[in-house]
Amino acid sequence: MAAAAAAGAGPEMVRGQVFDVGPRYTNLSYIGEGAYGMVCSAYDNVNKVRVAIKKISPFEHQTYCQRTLREIKILLRFRHENIIGINDIIRAPTIEQMKDVYIVQDLMETDLYKLLKTQHLSNDHICYFLYQILRGLKYIHSANVLHRDLKPSNLLLNTTCDLKICDFGLARVADPDHDHTGFLTEYVATRWYRAPEIMLNSKGYTKSIDIWSVGCILAEMLSNRPIFPGKHYLDQLNHILGILGSPSQEDLNCIINLKARNYLLSLPHKNKVPWNRLFPNADSKALDLLDKMLTFNPHKRIEVEQALAHPYLEQYYDPSDEPIAEAPFKFDMELDDLPKEKLKELIFEETARFQPGYRS
């Protein structure tokens, strides 16, 4: 834990890192770190609560700039109880001085990944967590956004079992017609939660990839272990087919990539493993919904509104309290091709509203 900075004593240090967030945020305490930044909790002297502050230093890398800009653009436009918001952003007053960006968010005690390492969940908890994931996802999908990296560590939890989806750095506007060349190379989302079509096709992607990830998360809540822990690309596919069985001819016809289709045709026939054999203690309604989410063919996979209306979630289902976005989200430009200098300018502009004396 960093010592509390005395008023006016300059930035606090946390594990050798400068955290320049005073005077409003003090009493910093280390939480963890990701690929390009550290997260601390801090005391907000204005709202009198502890908050989470993520320090991001992305400006050396085009990919990190892209992810940072995506996350900020999306989260500043989203407003939903099951999606983490941005409360404040701290950065230098000029673009030349801006080396880091500090993002202030609600402090959540833990995440689903940490929880599943230590606790076996009751059916009631599984049901409530799944409902909140789908409630947040309904809003995301209504904005025409794909999260693309749903996994237990991106689901934040607090002691009252509130759940918030975080990390929109890989999110995209849904565009089933656009052929994202190089899709697989830039697709760094965790393999275990990846839909089979991501490994088999490169053309376009749809909201059904997020539903697949939610199915993987439900299976993990039922058993405290990942359902498809593939060691590499082909191993991942083999794990999936080992449980779902061989795809039907109709399902194979959806695979545009001939090499991928021929690979699947070359494999020995596998039978589907019954879900109640894998999860003998699970609620039968939970397994019915799991089956509809972990469907090989993305066109037959359940959609988020149908999933919310499934009998497993009937005690929570309330369409009048499951809000959607006001308007579909649009990125003005494809960020993939922009140089990091341009992305830095866009991050600077996007964060201006939090600067003292800002006038829109």
Rank of each mutant, 00 (worst) to 15 (best):
S223E: 10
Y102P: 05
P323S: 11
C65Q: 10
Y187I: 03
F354D: 12
V304K: 00
L278N: 03
L313H: 09
H80E: 07
R301G: 00
L313P: 05
M293I: 14
L76N: 06
M293F: 05
F129C: 00
S248A: 08
G32T: 02
L107T: 04
P319G: 12
K117Y: 04
M98L: 14
Y358L: 10
D210A: 13
F19A: 09
D175V: 14
M38G: 13
I31P: 04
D88Q: 13
R301C: 10
Y139T: 10
D88H: 08
R194L: 10
V49A: 15
G8Y: 04
I140R: 11
F296W: 05
L264I: 08
I90S: 01
D332M: 02
G22K: 02
C40F: 13
R194D: 06
N158M: 01
V273Y: 11
K151G: 04
D291K: 06
P339E: 11
D337G: 00
Q66R: 13
H120C: 03
G16A: 10
L265H: 04
Q62K: 15
L137F: 00
H180P: 09
Y358D: 09
H178L: 15
S142E: 03
P196F: 04
Q97L: 15
R194G: 13
R148K: 08
L308D: 09
P93T: 15
Y312M: 08
R191E: 05
A5E: 05
K270L: 09
K151Y: 08
A219M: 08
T159S: 15
V46H: 09
L265S: 07
L112T: 04
T63V: 11
I95F: 15
H178F: 11
L116E: 11
R77H: 04
V46F: 12
I90E: 04
D88P: 05
N87R: 11
E109L: 08
Y316R: 03
L170T: 04
Y36N: 15
D332H: 08
N27R: 10
V273W: 02
K73G: 05
N281T: 15
I243C: 09
I227L: 12
I211M: 09
H310E: 04
S360Q: 09
I90P: 01
Q119H: 15
L137P: 00
I255C: 13
Q17G: 03
D251I: 01
I324A: 03
I256K: 11
E350A: 03
C161L: 08
I243M: 08
F19R: 08
P311R: 00
N158A: 08
W192V: 11
Q105L: 14
K55W: 01
A195E: 11
E250V: 13
Q132N: 06
H299M: 06
I140E: 09
H80M: 00
D251W: 08
E71W: 01
H141A: 05
K99M: 14
T26N: 14
D162H: 09
V46D: 15
V188W: 12
A352N: 11
F329A: 05
